[in-house]
Design a protein around this nucleic acid. Structure first.
Lengths: 187, 187
DNA sequence: GCCACCATGTAAACAGTTACATGATTAG
DNA sequence: CTAATCATGTAACTGTTTACATGGTGGC
Protein backbone atom coordinates (compact mmCIF):
# COMPACT_ATOMS: atom_id res chain seq x y z
CA UNK A 1 0.00 0.00 0.00
CA UNK A 2 1.73 3.09 -1.23
CA UNK A 3 1.22 6.28 0.68
CA UNK A 4 0.78 9.41 -1.32
CA UNK A 5 2.37 12.53 -0.04
CA UNK A 6 -0.53 14.25 1.66
CA UNK A 7 1.41 17.45 2.25
CA UNK A 8 1.78 17.77 -1.52
CA UNK A 9 -2.03 17.66 -1.85
CA UNK A 10 -2.32 20.28 0.86
CA UNK A 11 -0.08 22.48 -1.32
CA UNK A 12 -2.23 21.83 -4.36
CA UNK A 13 -5.27 22.84 -2.36
CA UNK A 14 -3.71 26.09 -1.22
CA UNK A 15 -2.56 26.89 -4.73
CA UNK A 16 -6.08 26.30 -6.00
CA UNK A 17 -7.08 29.37 -4.09
CA UNK A 18 -4.33 31.54 -5.52
CA UNK A 19 -0.81 31.33 -7.01
CA UNK A 20 1.94 31.63 -4.42
CA UNK A 21 5.66 31.25 -3.70
CA UNK A 22 7.05 28.59 -1.36
CA UNK A 23 7.55 31.26 1.24
CA UNK A 24 3.92 32.38 0.98
CA UNK A 25 2.80 28.77 1.31
CA UNK A 26 4.74 28.40 4.53
CA UNK A 27 2.90 31.35 6.03
CA UNK A 28 -0.41 30.09 4.73
CA UNK A 29 0.26 26.77 6.43
CA UNK A 30 1.15 28.53 9.65
CA UNK A 31 -2.09 30.37 10.07
CA UNK A 32 -4.55 28.02 8.46
CA UNK A 33 -4.11 24.29 7.88
CA UNK A 34 -0.89 24.14 9.90
CA UNK A 35 -3.07 23.75 12.99
CA UNK A 36 -3.96 20.24 11.86
CA UNK A 37 -1.40 19.62 9.12
CA UNK A 38 1.92 21.41 9.71
CA UNK A 39 4.65 21.72 7.09
CA UNK A 40 8.09 23.31 7.16
CA UNK A 41 10.35 24.67 4.42
CA UNK A 42 12.15 21.35 4.37
CA UNK A 43 8.94 19.75 3.12
CA UNK A 44 7.46 22.54 1.04
CA UNK A 45 10.33 23.29 -1.31
CA UNK A 46 11.08 19.67 -2.23
CA UNK A 47 7.36 19.03 -2.69
CA UNK A 48 7.05 22.03 -5.02
CA UNK A 49 9.91 20.67 -7.10
CA UNK A 50 8.24 17.30 -7.37
CA UNK A 51 4.81 18.70 -8.22
CA UNK A 52 6.31 20.93 -10.92
CA UNK A 53 8.14 17.97 -12.45
CA UNK A 54 4.87 16.04 -12.56
CA UNK A 55 3.15 18.97 -14.24
CA UNK A 56 0.61 19.47 -11.45
CA UNK A 57 1.83 23.01 -10.84
CA UNK A 58 3.75 25.48 -12.98
CA UNK A 59 6.35 27.87 -11.59
CA UNK A 60 7.24 31.15 -13.21
CA UNK A 61 10.01 33.50 -12.16
CA UNK A 62 8.96 36.91 -10.94
CA UNK A 63 10.48 39.85 -9.21
CA UNK A 64 9.63 40.20 -5.58
CA UNK A 65 10.28 43.23 -3.42
CA UNK A 66 12.65 45.45 -5.37
CA UNK A 67 14.26 43.04 -7.71
CA UNK A 68 14.51 39.92 -5.55
CA UNK A 69 14.02 36.74 -7.53
CA UNK A 70 11.13 34.51 -6.59
CA UNK A 71 9.11 31.70 -8.12
CA UNK A 72 5.33 31.90 -8.12
CA UNK A 73 3.54 28.58 -8.53
CA UNK A 74 0.18 28.14 -10.21
CA UNK A 75 -2.06 25.09 -10.20
CA UNK A 76 -2.38 23.49 -13.63
CA UNK A 77 -5.46 21.73 -14.98
CA UNK A 78 -3.79 18.39 -14.27
CA UNK A 79 -3.11 19.57 -10.73
CA UNK A 80 -6.69 20.58 -10.23
CA UNK A 81 -7.82 17.16 -11.44
CA UNK A 82 -5.37 15.38 -9.12
CA UNK A 83 -6.60 17.47 -6.19
CA UNK A 84 -10.20 16.56 -6.89
CA UNK A 85 -9.38 12.87 -7.23
CA UNK A 86 -7.61 12.98 -3.89
CA UNK A 87 -10.57 14.70 -2.23
CA UNK A 88 -12.80 11.81 -3.30
CA UNK A 89 -10.62 9.20 -1.56
CA UNK A 90 -11.73 8.59 2.06
CA UNK A 91 -9.31 10.12 4.57
CA UNK A 92 -6.96 7.78 6.42
CA UNK A 93 -7.26 7.39 10.15
CA UNK A 94 -6.19 10.44 12.11
CA UNK A 95 -2.94 10.09 13.80
CA UNK A 96 -2.27 11.69 17.07
CA UNK A 97 0.59 11.25 19.48
CA UNK A 98 0.37 12.57 23.02
CA UNK A 99 3.64 12.43 24.88
CA UNK A 100 1.91 13.98 27.87
CA UNK A 101 -0.43 10.99 28.19
CA UNK A 102 2.52 8.64 27.98
CA UNK A 103 4.20 10.41 30.88
CA UNK A 104 0.95 10.53 32.81
CA UNK A 105 0.34 6.84 32.21
CA UNK A 106 3.51 6.18 34.17
CA UNK A 107 2.63 8.95 36.60
CA UNK A 108 2.75 6.72 39.68
CA UNK A 109 6.54 6.62 39.20
CA UNK A 110 6.91 10.40 39.42
CA UNK A 111 6.43 12.82 42.32
CA UNK A 112 2.72 13.82 42.38
CA UNK A 113 3.62 17.50 42.16
CA UNK A 114 5.35 16.83 38.85
CA UNK A 115 2.20 15.42 37.28
CA UNK A 116 0.20 18.38 38.49
CA UNK A 117 2.68 20.81 36.95
CA UNK A 118 2.60 18.95 33.66
CA UNK A 119 -1.17 19.18 33.47
CA UNK A 120 -1.25 22.83 34.47
CA UNK A 121 1.26 23.72 31.78
CA UNK A 122 -0.76 21.78 29.23
CA UNK A 123 -3.89 23.64 30.27
CA UNK A 124 -2.27 27.06 29.93
CA UNK A 125 -1.01 26.18 26.46
CA UNK A 126 -4.44 25.29 25.13
CA UNK A 127 -6.17 28.13 26.86
CA UNK A 128 -4.11 30.43 24.69
CA UNK A 129 -4.59 28.28 21.59
CA UNK A 130 -8.35 28.29 22.11
CA UNK A 131 -8.38 32.08 22.31
CA UNK A 132 -6.67 32.23 18.92
CA UNK A 133 -9.32 29.95 17.42
CA UNK A 134 -12.09 32.03 18.99
CA UNK A 135 -10.67 35.00 17.10
CA UNK A 136 -10.68 33.02 13.85
CA UNK A 137 -14.27 32.00 14.46
CA UNK A 138 -15.42 35.59 14.94
CA UNK A 139 -13.65 36.68 11.75
CA UNK A 140 -15.14 33.82 9.75
CA UNK A 141 -18.70 34.33 10.97
CA UNK A 142 -18.47 37.92 9.79
CA UNK A 143 -17.65 36.91 6.21
CA UNK A 144 -19.56 33.65 6.09
CA UNK A 145 -21.70 34.62 3.12
CA UNK A 146 -18.89 35.99 1.01
CA UNK A 147 -17.60 32.62 -0.12
CA UNK A 148 -18.55 28.98 0.20
CA UNK A 149 -15.00 28.33 1.38
CA UNK A 150 -15.64 30.19 4.61
CA UNK A 151 -18.16 27.65 5.80
CA UNK A 152 -15.60 24.89 5.40
CA UNK A 153 -12.90 26.93 7.09
CA UNK A 154 -15.33 27.45 9.95
CA UNK A 155 -15.88 23.72 10.27
CA UNK A 156 -12.18 23.13 10.82
CA UNK A 157 -12.01 25.95 13.36
CA UNK A 158 -15.01 24.61 15.25
CA UNK A 159 -13.27 21.24 15.36
CA UNK A 160 -10.25 22.80 17.01
CA UNK A 161 -12.38 24.71 19.48
CA UNK A 162 -14.26 21.59 20.49
CA UNK A 163 -11.09 19.57 20.93
CA UNK A 164 -9.22 22.26 22.83
CA UNK A 165 -12.29 22.76 24.97
CA UNK A 166 -12.18 19.05 25.77
CA UNK A 167 -8.50 19.39 26.70
CA UNK A 168 -9.30 22.15 29.18
CA UNK A 169 -12.22 20.27 30.73
CA UNK A 170 -10.07 17.17 31.03
CA UNK A 171 -7.24 19.11 32.67
CA UNK A 172 -9.64 20.44 35.31
CA UNK A 173 -11.01 16.98 35.96
CA UNK A 174 -7.53 15.48 36.13
CA UNK A 175 -6.31 18.10 38.57
CA UNK A 176 -9.36 17.52 40.76
CA UNK A 177 -8.82 13.76 40.72
CA UNK A 178 -5.17 14.13 41.65
CA UNK A 179 -5.99 16.65 44.39
CA UNK A 180 -8.56 14.23 45.80
CA UNK A 181 -6.03 11.43 45.88
CA UNK A 182 -3.40 13.59 47.55
CA UNK A 183 -5.84 14.67 50.23
CA UNK A 184 -6.64 11.05 50.97
CA UNK A 185 -3.04 9.99 51.39
CA UNK A 186 -2.21 13.17 53.26
CA UNK A 187 -4.96 12.62 55.85
CA UNK B 1 18.61 19.48 19.62
CA UNK B 2 18.77 15.73 19.65
CA UNK B 3 15.55 13.84 19.98
CA UNK B 4 15.45 10.82 22.18
CA UNK B 5 13.44 7.90 21.08
CA UNK B 6 10.20 8.31 22.99
CA UNK B 7 8.90 4.91 21.96
CA UNK B 8 11.92 3.40 23.72
CA UNK B 9 10.88 5.14 26.94
CA UNK B 10 7.37 3.85 26.47
CA UNK B 11 8.86 0.36 26.37
CA UNK B 12 10.87 1.02 29.54
CA UNK B 13 7.67 2.15 31.22
CA UNK B 14 5.80 -0.98 30.25
CA UNK B 15 8.67 -3.19 31.35
CA UNK B 16 8.72 -1.41 34.70
CA UNK B 17 5.39 -2.99 35.35
CA UNK B 18 6.50 -6.49 34.46
CA UNK B 19 9.03 -8.38 32.32
CA UNK B 20 7.81 -9.16 28.83
CA UNK B 21 8.71 -10.34 25.34
CA UNK B 22 8.58 -8.09 22.28
CA UNK B 23 5.41 -9.83 21.25
CA UNK B 24 3.79 -9.17 24.63
CA UNK B 25 4.83 -5.53 24.39
CA UNK B 26 3.09 -5.21 21.05
CA UNK B 27 -0.15 -6.42 22.56
CA UNK B 28 0.30 -4.19 25.58
CA UNK B 29 0.74 -1.24 23.26
CA UNK B 30 -2.38 -2.21 21.37
CA UNK B 31 -4.72 -2.15 24.28
CA UNK B 32 -3.21 0.52 26.48
CA UNK B 33 -0.84 3.28 25.40
CA UNK B 34 -1.25 2.50 21.70
CA UNK B 35 -4.33 4.72 21.76
CA UNK B 36 -2.10 7.75 22.11
CA UNK B 37 1.32 6.33 21.28
CA UNK B 38 1.20 3.48 18.77
CA UNK B 39 4.14 1.21 17.98
CA UNK B 40 4.58 -1.71 15.61
CA UNK B 41 6.96 -4.66 15.54
CA UNK B 42 9.23 -2.73 13.24
CA UNK B 43 9.83 -0.27 16.04
CA UNK B 44 9.64 -2.52 19.07
CA UNK B 45 12.22 -5.15 18.16
CA UNK B 46 14.96 -2.73 17.05
CA UNK B 47 14.27 -0.59 20.13
CA UNK B 48 14.62 -3.63 22.39
CA UNK B 49 17.97 -4.41 20.78
CA UNK B 50 19.19 -0.87 21.38
CA UNK B 51 17.98 -0.72 24.96
CA UNK B 52 19.63 -4.04 25.75
CA UNK B 53 22.92 -2.84 24.26
CA UNK B 54 22.75 0.26 26.45
CA UNK B 55 22.10 -1.88 29.50
CA UNK B 56 18.71 -0.34 30.25
CA UNK B 57 17.00 -3.69 29.90
CA UNK B 58 18.24 -7.27 30.11
CA UNK B 59 16.93 -10.08 27.95
CA UNK B 60 16.99 -13.71 28.94
CA UNK B 61 16.04 -16.64 26.78
CA UNK B 62 13.09 -18.69 27.93
CA UNK B 63 10.84 -21.35 26.60
CA UNK B 64 7.43 -20.23 25.48
CA UNK B 65 4.54 -22.48 24.59
CA UNK B 66 5.94 -25.98 24.31
CA UNK B 67 9.55 -25.33 23.60
CA UNK B 68 9.35 -22.26 21.39
CA UNK B 69 12.25 -19.89 21.99
CA UNK B 70 11.48 -16.42 23.26
CA UNK B 71 13.31 -13.57 24.94
CA UNK B 72 11.86 -12.00 28.06
CA UNK B 73 13.13 -8.51 28.82
CA UNK B 74 13.49 -7.07 32.31
CA UNK B 75 14.10 -3.45 33.29
CA UNK B 76 17.52 -2.94 34.90
CA UNK B 77 18.33 -0.42 37.62
CA UNK B 78 19.94 1.81 34.98
CA UNK B 79 16.77 1.52 32.91
CA UNK B 80 14.61 2.48 35.85
CA UNK B 81 16.76 5.54 36.45
CA UNK B 82 16.62 6.55 32.78
CA UNK B 83 12.83 6.20 32.83
CA UNK B 84 12.53 8.42 35.86
CA UNK B 85 14.83 11.05 34.37
CA UNK B 86 12.72 11.09 31.23
CA UNK B 87 9.52 11.48 33.23
CA UNK B 88 10.92 14.65 34.80
CA UNK B 89 11.52 16.32 31.42
CA UNK B 90 8.49 18.36 30.27
CA UNK B 91 6.62 16.66 27.42
CA UNK B 92 7.07 18.07 23.93
CA UNK B 93 4.11 19.58 22.14
CA UNK B 94 1.49 17.08 21.10
CA UNK B 95 1.41 16.34 17.48
CA UNK B 96 -1.77 15.60 15.72
CA UNK B 97 -2.49 15.31 12.03
CA UNK B 98 -6.05 15.26 10.74
CA UNK B 99 -6.33 14.36 7.11
CA UNK B 100 -10.09 14.70 7.39
CA UNK B 101 -9.79 18.39 8.26
CA UNK B 102 -7.48 18.94 5.34
CA UNK B 103 -10.05 17.46 2.99
CA UNK B 104 -12.84 19.40 4.63
CA UNK B 105 -10.85 22.62 4.41
CA UNK B 106 -11.00 22.23 0.65
CA UNK B 107 -14.59 20.99 0.90
CA UNK B 108 -16.00 23.65 -1.44
CA UNK B 109 -14.21 21.82 -4.26
CA UNK B 110 -16.02 18.55 -3.62
CA UNK B 111 -19.65 17.52 -4.07
CA UNK B 112 -21.51 18.43 -0.82
CA UNK B 113 -22.69 14.85 -0.41
CA UNK B 114 -19.08 13.71 -0.28
CA UNK B 115 -18.28 15.94 2.69
CA UNK B 116 -21.35 14.72 4.50
CA UNK B 117 -20.33 11.10 3.97
CA UNK B 118 -16.82 11.80 5.21
CA UNK B 119 -18.13 13.30 8.44
CA UNK B 120 -20.67 10.55 8.98
CA UNK B 121 -18.01 7.89 8.59
CA UNK B 122 -15.75 9.76 11.02
CA UNK B 123 -18.59 9.93 13.53
CA UNK B 124 -19.30 6.22 13.32
CA UNK B 125 -15.65 5.42 13.86
CA UNK B 126 -15.39 7.40 17.07
CA UNK B 127 -18.73 6.27 18.38
CA UNK B 128 -17.29 2.78 18.46
CA UNK B 129 -13.96 3.97 19.85
CA UNK B 130 -15.74 5.84 22.64
CA UNK B 131 -17.68 2.72 23.59
CA UNK B 132 -14.37 0.87 24.01
CA UNK B 133 -13.05 3.59 26.30
CA UNK B 134 -16.27 3.57 28.30
CA UNK B 135 -15.63 -0.09 28.93
CA UNK B 136 -12.09 0.66 30.08
CA UNK B 137 -13.38 3.35 32.40
CA UNK B 138 -15.86 1.01 34.07
CA UNK B 139 -13.15 -1.62 34.59
CA UNK B 140 -10.72 0.91 36.04
CA UNK B 141 -13.22 2.46 38.42
CA UNK B 142 -13.86 -0.98 39.84
CA UNK B 143 -10.20 -1.52 40.74
CA UNK B 144 -9.27 2.08 41.45
CA UNK B 145 -8.05 1.43 44.99
CA UNK B 146 -6.01 -1.62 44.17
CA UNK B 147 -3.05 0.30 42.78
CA UNK B 148 -1.95 3.89 42.39
CA UNK B 149 -1.33 3.11 38.72
CA UNK B 150 -5.04 2.74 38.09
CA UNK B 151 -5.73 6.39 38.82
CA UNK B 152 -3.21 7.40 36.17
CA UNK B 153 -4.56 4.92 33.67
CA UNK B 154 -7.98 6.39 34.32
CA UNK B 155 -6.70 9.88 33.57
CA UNK B 156 -5.55 8.82 30.12
CA UNK B 157 -8.85 7.07 29.44
CA UNK B 158 -10.82 10.13 30.54
CA UNK B 159 -8.73 12.17 28.14
CA UNK B 160 -9.71 9.93 25.27
CA UNK B 161 -13.37 9.98 26.26
CA UNK B 162 -13.42 13.78 26.41
CA UNK B 163 -11.69 14.12 23.05
CA UNK B 164 -13.81 11.51 21.29
CA UNK B 165 -16.89 13.12 22.82
CA UNK B 166 -15.76 16.41 21.29
CA UNK B 167 -15.35 14.66 17.92
CA UNK B 168 -18.94 13.41 18.06
CA UNK B 169 -20.37 16.77 19.10
CA UNK B 170 -18.40 18.46 16.33
CA UNK B 171 -19.61 15.97 13.74
CA UNK B 172 -23.22 16.69 14.68
CA UNK B 173 -22.65 20.42 14.50
CA UNK B 174 -20.84 20.10 11.18
CA UNK B 175 -23.59 18.00 9.66
CA UNK B 176 -26.20 20.51 10.83
CA UNK B 177 -24.23 23.40 9.36
CA UNK B 178 -23.85 21.64 6.04
CA UNK B 179 -27.52 20.66 5.99
CA UNK B 180 -28.48 24.29 6.64
CA UNK B 181 -26.32 25.47 3.78
CA UNK B 182 -27.76 22.90 1.40
CA UNK B 183 -31.31 23.86 2.28
CA UNK B 184 -30.51 27.50 1.56
CA UNK B 185 -29.05 26.85 -1.85
CA UNK B 186 -31.74 24.28 -2.62
CA UNK B 187 -34.60 26.71 -1.86
C1' DG C 1 -6.10 -28.78 5.95
C1' DC C 2 -6.46 -24.05 7.33
C1' DC C 3 -6.60 -20.19 10.23
C1' DA C 4 -5.40 -17.82 14.29
C1' DC C 5 -2.01 -17.03 17.45
C1' DC C 6 2.75 -17.12 19.33
C1' DA C 7 7.32 -15.41 18.27
C1' DT C 8 11.25 -12.74 16.09
C1' DG C 9 13.31 -10.12 13.22
C1' DT C 10 15.14 -7.31 8.66
C1' DA C 11 14.87 -4.09 4.77
C1' DA C 12 13.14 -0.55 2.22
C1' DA C 13 10.58 3.34 1.63
C1' DC C 14 8.72 7.41 3.28
C1' DA C 15 7.76 11.38 6.12
C1' DG C 16 9.16 14.79 8.99
C1' DT C 17 12.40 17.75 11.64
C1' DT C 18 16.49 20.36 12.26
C1' DA C 19 20.44 22.51 10.90
C1' DC C 20 23.06 24.64 7.49
C1' DA C 21 23.81 28.03 3.85
C1' DT C 22 23.02 32.42 1.49
C1' DG C 23 21.60 37.08 0.74
C1' DA C 24 18.77 41.40 0.02
C1' DT C 25 15.48 44.90 2.04
C1' DT C 26 13.11 47.54 5.48
C1' DA C 27 11.79 49.36 9.88
C1' DG C 28 13.19 50.70 14.38
C1' DC D 1 23.37 48.68 13.57
C1' DT D 2 20.31 45.15 14.30
C1' DA D 3 16.37 42.48 13.97
C1' DA D 4 12.64 41.02 11.25
C1' DT D 5 10.93 39.76 6.93
C1' DC D 6 11.36 38.15 2.23
C1' DA D 7 13.20 34.34 -0.42
C1' DT D 8 15.16 29.59 -1.70
C1' DG D 9 17.00 25.67 -1.13
C1' DT D 10 20.08 21.25 0.62
C1' DA D 11 21.74 17.69 3.80
C1' DA D 12 21.59 14.84 7.56
C1' DC D 13 19.12 12.50 10.65
C1' DT D 14 15.41 10.29 13.08
C1' DG D 15 11.22 8.08 13.35
C1' DT D 16 7.51 5.48 11.40
C1' DT D 17 5.21 2.38 8.41
C1' DT D 18 4.94 -1.47 5.38
C1' DA D 19 6.37 -5.47 3.40
C1' DC D 20 9.04 -9.46 3.56
C1' DA D 21 10.63 -13.70 5.73
C1' DT D 22 10.23 -17.74 8.77
C1' DG D 23 8.24 -21.29 11.53
C1' DG D 24 5.92 -23.90 15.41
C1' DT D 25 1.40 -24.88 18.10
C1' DG D 26 -3.53 -25.47 18.86
C1' DG D 27 -8.26 -25.52 17.70
C1' DC D 28 -11.96 -26.23 14.31
Amino acid sequence: MKRENITAYAILGLLHHEPMTGYDLKKRFENTIGHFWPAGFGQIYPALGGLAREGLIAGRAEEGKTGLAKTVYTLTEAGRAALQRWLAVPAAKEHVRYEILLKLFFGALAPPEQNVQTIREFRRRYERALAVLDGFEADLRRVLNESEDHLYYLLTVRFGQRVYGAYLAWADEALALLAGRNKETGA
